[in-house]
Amino acid sequence: MTFATYTAGGETCYGAVTDGGLIALNDIFPQWPTLFDAVQAGGLAALGEAARGKAVTHESVQYEMVLPTARRILCVGVNFPDRNAEYKDGSDLPKYMSLFPRFASGFTGHDRPLIRPPESHTLDYEGELAIVIGKTGRRIAQADAYDHIAALTLCNEGTIRDWVRHAKFNVTQGKNWDNSGALGPWLVPFTDAAQLDEARIVTRVNGDIRQDDLVSRMLHPIRRQIEYISTFMTLLPGDIIVTGTPTGSGARLDPPHYLKPGDVVEVDVSGIGTLRNTVEDEAI
């Protein structure tokens, strides 16, 4: 069973996703007003039990960023061999992973438009798999890392490319434009290592495959990501790690193919689903 944050009838809710619609759960669990609160409390199993046998409450919804109240989102950069090779020093595999923060305001939900700002038309896509932490930990061993994952979701880590290059040592300003990326559509509870170890990330733009790679080929595997990040900060339930994008972004095509209004971007991972977004210009 999967869980989403959504808006229906002017009200923001969270609930269980079914083929026929969504089953609202927030009224059943007033102690968890948001899906983020449920994750923090280790409540995904309870949500699943509560939804069993219940009727659909909302057939038509607008998906929101799956955890809109997430407090910490860390992204791993340059984490596939072919992606690393795009850089001048690509012959040397990085000893340590690149990390940068993103904020919830930079993400929208499934079937919502990514927003291209007037300041730059270099909006680019990055299809990724994201993990949601479910258990507090510091200095977590790789062997124990998967025990700290509550759920999986998908990310289009939309980037304003020229703003990434404004400064010498950081990319934060190019990674946090309002509604430039998407997280969702839902949370898939993490119950089996194969959900990650056998996962394949595929990104399509207007139906054409642009990115296609295996999670198992990451330079810094997800177990290592959890180990490394938890060395310098305590990982908390509800923290999100966006684990890295394969080669094939629009900036690396010749000539570059940046996203434009009317484009449709789909990020797909079997067992999790498809995150779909259109593109619109920002209304000024």
Rank of each mutant, 00 (worst) to 15 (best):
Y14I: 09
Y14S: 06
Y14F: 13
Y14K: 03
G15Q: 00
G15I: 00
G15Y: 03
A16S: 15
A16V: 15
A16L: 11
A16R: 05
V17R: 05
V17N: 11
V17H: 04
V17G: 15
V17I: 11
V17E: 08
T18D: 07
D19L: 12
D19Y: 10
D19F: 08
G20T: 07
G20A: 11
G20R: 08
G20F: 05
G21Q: 09
L22T: 09
L22C: 12
I23T: 02
I23E: 04
I23N: 04
I23D: 04
A24G: 15
A24M: 12
L25G: 10
L25C: 07
N26V: 02
N26L: 09
N26P: 14
D27N: 07
D27Y: 02
D27S: 06
I28E: 09
I28C: 04
I28P: 00
I28W: 04
I28G: 05
F29K: 10
P30K: 04
P30V: 00
P30N: 07
P30M: 02
Q31L: 15
Q31H: 14
Q31K: 15
Q31N: 15
Q31E: 15
Q31V: 12
Q31A: 10
Q31I: 14
W32Y: 07
W32D: 01
P33K: 08
P33H: 05
P33N: 04
P33W: 01
T34V: 05
T34D: 13
T34Y: 09
T34A: 06
T34F: 10
L35C: 05
L35M: 08
F36V: 12
F36Y: 14
D37P: 13
D37N: 14
D37I: 10
D37E: 12
A38N: 07
A38M: 04
V39P: 00
V39I: 11
V39F: 00
V39S: 05
V39Q: 03
V39G: 05
Q40F: 05
Q40M: 09
A41W: 02
A41Y: 00
A41C: 08
A41H: 07
A41E: 11
A41P: 06
G42T: 09
G42V: 13
G42Y: 07
G43W: 12
G43I: 06
G43H: 09
L44K: 00
A45D: 12
A45L: 09
A45Q: 12
A45M: 13
A46T: 13
L47H: 00
L47P: 00
L47W: 00
G48E: 04
G48V: 03
E49K: 14
E49R: 11
E49T: 12
E49L: 05
